[in-house]
């Protein structure tokens, strides 16, 4: 089938502002948007820039706005988006070139969540593992699925207003450790989350949940963090 792909283009060395360029290409309905972008870059316009790596929905590199919705280009089939496709960079982050955005504010916010295990207690008697029951593991299982693609954060109206808001992805990272029974840094993280740019900036728009390519219930996770602040319960 013949499809038309309208792509946002911006070269900071040449362009004052972004513009759109349309490409008409042959594609199979079962092709992915990433395949089409590769086709355009390989055969039509080598200057087109976009991020991609694993191409199988695991690395999270190729999150972009496809027909107005944040998606992974490698997980989006042509048959699901139609013959007229508009591809744009993620919103809320500065465009570096074409479909590539500056991810620094996103990862800066992620780092603020102390995204690593904090446990100063002595190791168990056998000196090996800190054991955890399947139920305790299941408590934060969902938030371990995050691939940091930024689809959720860049679909959030609060993040569009200010990238100082930590954003859904960072809050999911906090959730992953706050509810881990082996972790002892919950109070530090909740202290950080209680700041003006923390959980209170979430207005439960649910854009993040809709955008997540891993089907993580992001808004629910943020709600659980809010409840933990009020009740103190981490189970």
């Amino acid at each position: 089938m013949e499809i038309t792909v309208k792509i946002f283009r911006y070269n900071p060395e040449k362009d004052q502002r972004g513009h759109y360029v349309s490409y008409t290409v042959e594609a199979d309905p079962n092709d992915r948007v990433l395949d089409v972008l590769e086709l355009i870059k390989g055969h039509k316009d080598g200057s087109l820039s976009f991020r991609r790596s694993c191409a199988h929905g695991v690395c999270g590199s190729d999150a972009m706005r496809i027909n107005g919705r944040n998606m992974l280009a490698c997980k989006t089939l042509i048959r699901d988006v139609g013959a007229n496709i508009t591809v744009e960079p993620l919103m809320g982050l500065k465009v570096a070139k074409d479909l590539i955005v500056d991810m620094d504010p996103f990862f800066d916010n992620y780092k603020k969540m102390l995204p690593y295990m904090i446990n100063e207690s002595p190791l168990p008697a056998d000196g090996r593992e800190r054991l955890q029951s399947p139920e305790q593991r299941a408590r934060f299982d969902e938030s371990t699925k995050c691939i940091m693609c930024a689809a959720c954060t860049t679909s959030c109206p609060s993040f569009w207003a200010s990238d100082e808001y930590y954003g859904p992805a960072a809050l999911v990272a906090a959730h992953r450790f706050v509810f881990d029974s082996r972790d002892e840094g919950a109070s530090q993280r909740l202290e950080i989350l209680s700041e003006t740019n923390g959980t209170v900036r979430c207005h439960t728009a649910y854009n993040c949940t809709n955008a997540c390519p891993r089907d993580i219930q992001v808004t629910k996770a943020i709600g659980e963090l809010k409840m933990a602040m009020v009740t103190g319960k981490l189970e």
Binding site: S194, T196, K226, V230, L234
Partner: peptide, 22 residues
Amino acid sequence: MAARTLPIKKRGFSFEVFMWAF
């Protein structure tokens, strides 16, 4: 295993969170 519950002072219960709950 004992339930994990943080004391009030360690919940990050700030003015902002109070306003959210209120």
